[in-house]
Amino acid sequence: MTTNFLTKDELLKNNRSLWNSWTKINAKSTFYDLEGFKSNKNSLKNIEIKEMGSVHGKTLLHLQCHFGLDTLSWANKGAKVTGVDFSDEGIKLAKELSDQLNIPAHFICSDIFELPMLLEQKFDIVYTSYGVLTWLHNLNTWGKTIAHFLKPGGTFYIIEFHPFINMLNSEWTEFSEPYFYKGNSICSVESGSYADTNEKFIHSAYEWPHSMSEIICSLRQAGLLIEYLNEFPYSSFNCFPNLVEYGPDQYVLKDKQDSLPLMFSIKATFIPELLKI
C-alpha cells in the first residue's frame, strides 16, 4: 500500500469507477447469490436483525447501500426505505430489483456527503453496514450527515468490520499497517472483487483507515448518544483469507477463535441537546 496525492474529486471518481465495476461482478457472484435473494428477499444476517429489532412502519435511510439488497430486505420487513450509494450502476440495479420484486423503495445516486443537498426527509433510522467506513475520508462530516437525517430521538445503527483488521496484510498472516493512521488515503490495487477474487479485473482503490475512537467521537460530536458498542470475534461473511466456519454466519481466523475482534456494532440515539454540551 502507498499513499497518494490526488484531489478528493479524483479519488471519488476512481472509487466510483471501481464500485461500478464491482457492481457488475458482485451481481453475478455466489457471494451475493442474487437469484437466492429474489426467492427469499432477505440478505440480512441474524446479528443485525436481532440488534435492530422491529422496523415495521419506520422510515429508514440506508447509507452506502451498494445495489440495495439490505435496503430491500428492510423494506420487506416493513420499513419505508431510502437507499443511497455513489455508484450509478449500483443504484440502477437496486431500482431494477425493487421494480422486479415489487418491493417499494426509494434509491438515490449520491455521495453521502452531498446528500443533504438532494434529500430533505428526516428518518426514524439511519443504517449502514459491512465495509463502508474505509471509503469515507472524513468521519466528522459522516457523523454530522447521520445526525442531519435523523429525527430527534431517532436511531443510528452500524455493523461493520473491526478497524483492527486494517492492520493485517493481504494474507492475514502478519501486521503490515499501523492502527492509528494519519495522512492521505492509502492506495491499493484490487484484483477481482471481494465477492469474486477469480474475476479478471484490476483497479486501484483509495481508502482511509479509522480507529474505533475516531468512529465513536465523530458520532458523539454530532449529538448521538451511544447506547452500546459491541465487538465480535467473528465475521458474518467468509470474505477474508484464512477464515474457518465456526457457526451459522460466523467465520473466525484459523487457530485464533475468540481471540481477535473482526466486527463491531454501534447503536446510538440522536439527541440534539447534546450538541449544546
Rank of each mutant, 00 (worst) to 15 (best):
L18T: 02
T141C: 06
K267V: 06
A195M: 02
M117R: 09
L150T: 03
K13D: 09
F107N: 01
W135G: 06
Q64R: 13
F67L: 09
Q221S: 09
M167T: 10
F161M: 03
G153L: 13
W74G: 05
E177T: 14
F180V: 11
A79S: 01
K144D: 04
A27T: 04
E120A: 15
N230R: 12
T71G: 00
K122Y: 07
C187P: 08
I108D: 03
F201P: 00
L44Y: 01
S29K: 02
Q221K: 12
D33V: 06
K182V: 15
E199P: 07
S211D: 09
E160D: 14
N238V: 14
I25G: 01
G143M: 00
S43N: 13
D88Y: 00
S259T: 15
M263P: 08
D124C: 06
K77Q: 15
K41E: 07
L101D: 10
L12M: 14
S204G: 11
L61M: 14
M1L: 15
L6K: 02
Y251P: 12
V84G: 01
A105V: 01
S21L: 07
P163A: 11
V252G: 08
N169A: 06
L260R: 15
I103Q: 09
Y251G: 15
G247H: 11
E245A: 07
I202N: 14
E171C: 10
H106D: 15
L133I: 08
L101M: 14
K58R: 08
S218E: 07
H62F: 04
Y181D: 02
S43R: 11
K267M: 11
I108A: 06
Q64Y: 10
K144A: 07
E96V: 13
E231F: 13
T82A: 03
L61F: 12
L260P: 13
N166R: 12
D124N: 10
L61R: 07
N42H: 06
E174G: 06
L97E: 02
S110R: 04
W22R: 12
H66Q: 14
W74C: 09
N40Q: 13
K58G: 03
L150N: 01
N140I: 10
V55Y: 03
A222I: 02
M167C: 13
S129Q: 08
F123I: 05
Y157E: 01
E96T: 11
G36T: 08
W208A: 05
A147C: 13
L243P: 03
S235D: 09
T23G: 00
L12T: 06
M117K: 15
P261F: 05
S17C: 08
M212P: 05
I186F: 03
R16V: 13
N14L: 15
S54W: 07
S110I: 00
I47H: 12
F107D: 01
S98N: 03
